[in-house]
Design a protein around this nucleic acid. Structure first.
Lengths: 354, 354
DNA sequence: TTGAAAGCGTTACCAC
DNA sequence: GTGGTAACGCTTTCAA
């Protein structure tokens, strides 16, 4: 546990000054430092296992190369983890590091979190939420390059918050594609069993669903548009009720709020002796890892582009920091950056029963 | 986006020196600074919204109050997230912050990750893995206070690695408790459908299972001890085979490798027209959020103490940094710190059929 | 081509 | 009770 070597140690060992060390190690040696000095510096650095102290460098440069991440519950959620992973991967590839703090759903705490991050002099900030959410943007976020991932500024946010880049999944298109997939398979009696309307995503998907139905000239049964939760149990309950009706009276396809609810629906079908997809088609949403693709049968679903959401939010922040880079398309401020959701057809959906 | 105030700004505004500001703001004002100076300093600090620059402080103090977290895939995993959350919460409560880097399963990258963290001068380091794992401890971890969460040093690790605190779930006890629960319900024909033996946890749980059976004087059917995977699909397949036998020939209880595999088993039972738990009891493992408790029926399971694992690993690291604190029980080095797994009986297990 | 010095913002020590 | 000064480790500018 011996003290790490400093630039001065390297300089002494190589018989030069600190400045020379700095120049050489930062690639600015050519033309400034004698060839053999360069050699000795490199050698000394290697022997001492020298790497510059990032803290000292940060203080000197007035930039830390750290991007702060505030999440409402990301770390504990399988979903947001993906957003963070996407953001982190991009940051790392550009020599940045991410510093995440979780508020564990405590809205009071995000002020604290932002302040902590600001005190640590992060170069940028991204707010990440578990589900698509409206967000009261913490004041501090407006004092440095920042972006919103999976959330958007609420009207009562501080002035200027509306201009933050907000990266979101295109839920309307996702709902439309899901419905269109079922319609293309010949389904006409489709139930929309959205998750919980407390999530803004559900209303958006419903709008997409209605659009697809309208385009196909199909009627929407209003009593088949309902809240069936985001978990196995409520999905099971809602679909059991619906699927208990005689064959001619029941939907031939169910659109679930997410993959876990869809698992509940497949289970309900099994208990009613119905085969999926022969008797009823069931679609999930999210393409949740370790669930959708590995269900029996594998779930047709719509993939939430979480990784990309994290990436794009990070790209927006880094874009400002790196000076934008050449030929960089500037996105208009204030408009949500919608990322498409890919349709993933698997085996839980099939042709409508005759 | 105006520059943040520094201690000098505060000093000027209050008409005192920087030292006075530092003393007062660090609570050492009493007896060193005049009462009215203190007032003015506090007022000036508040007006300027001053908070000390953590970077400068870190450089000065030679400690960053940052604990580095290296994870093999934590961020993307619903499980490790819990470990990280536990570690982070404890760290935060003591004024520390965690800096996590994910190697995304790329073993090469952990050297890089450790180096990055070391360059940033983290005060301590924790290596976190998704499942219980043997780990080749990266060299750099031995140069500062460190701990292993959910993993333990492999024999080919650098010398000294064996002395690192390793926090692990007590899988043997977990397996024993799960089996004992079923035995207490009157089951005699119990199948052990462990996950994958590539995970060391499975062999440990199997040992616990065998111990419980032996204690109860029950025979273990070797053809009922098998690898049934960690996902819905393999769980479904393995249990379908087993449960297709006539009632007198099949197990009355299944012990799954995790909750997701158990979901597959419940689904298989449903398709075979068997009721859970009337016809067959099924136990999960992990107590996975949003799955176990919300399954139909809710899964009996064994809770993996992930949060606590993270906490204890962090406690070990902080213990060294804070000087151990008074009356602090020192854990013997080199022995794994086993955290008990709590049995969570729910409705997927019941009395053995008569 | 090289070395000396300033400055980033903080805290602690030491004269006054 | 108070304020100046040094030091943390780095990079950059300027003078030799």
């Amino acid at each position: 546990m011996t003290r790490k070597a400093t630039a001065l140690d390297v300089a002494r060992r190589a018989g030069v000054s600190r400045s020379a060390v700095s120049l050489v190690l930062n690639g600015r040696g050519e033309g400034n430092v004698a060839k053999d000095s360069q050699q000795r510096i490199l050698a000394a650095a290697a022997e001492l296992n020298y790497t510059p102290n990032a803290i000292a460098r940060s203080l000197r440069d007035q930039r830390t190369r750290v991007i702060g991440l505030v999440s409402d519950a990301a770390v504990t959620s399988p979903f947001d983890g993906e957003i963070i992973a996407g953001a982190d991967a991009l940051a790392r590839s550009r020599g940045f590091v991410t510093l995440a703090t979780d508020t564990e759903q405590d809205a009071e705490r995000d002020l604290d979190a932002v302040r902590t991050l600001l005190d640590r002099r992060v170069d940028g900030l991204i707010y990440v939420t578990v589900g698509l959410h409206e967000l009261h943007v913490p004041q501090g976020m407006l004092t440095l390059p920042a972006a919103l991932a999976n959330c958007y500024a609420s009207p009562d946010s501080p002035p200027g918050a509306g201009a933050l880049t907000s990266v979101q999944p295109d839920e309307v298109a996702g709902g439309r594609d899901a419905a269109a997939h079922l319609i293309a398979l010949g389904h006409r009696r489709i139930a929309f069993l959205g998750g919980e309307y407390s999530s803004p995503a559900v209303a958006l998907r419903e709008a997409g669903f209605r659009a697809a139905m309208a385009e196909a000239g199909l009627p929407v049964r209003e009593d088949w548009v309902l809240e069936a939760g985001f978990d196995i149990a409520p999905g099971h309950a809602a679909s059991t009720a619906l699927l208990s009706a005689p064959a001619s009276e029941r939907p031939t396809a169910l659109l679930a709020g997410n993959d876990r609810a869809a698992v509940g629906m497949v289970l309900a079908a099994a208990r009613l002796g119905l085969d999926v997809p022969r008797d009823v088609s069931i679609m999930g949403y999210d393409d949740e890892r370790r669930v959708a693709a590995l269900m029996i049968p594998p779930l047709s679903t719509v993939q939430l582009p979480l990784r990309r959401i994290g990436e794009e939010a990070m790209r927006a922040v880094l874009g400002v920091l790196d000076g934008g880079g050449p030929g960089r398309a500037q996105r208009p401020a204030g408009e949500p950056f919608l990322i498409p959701c890919r349709l993933v057809p698997r085996e839980s959906t099939g042709p409508a029963p005759a």
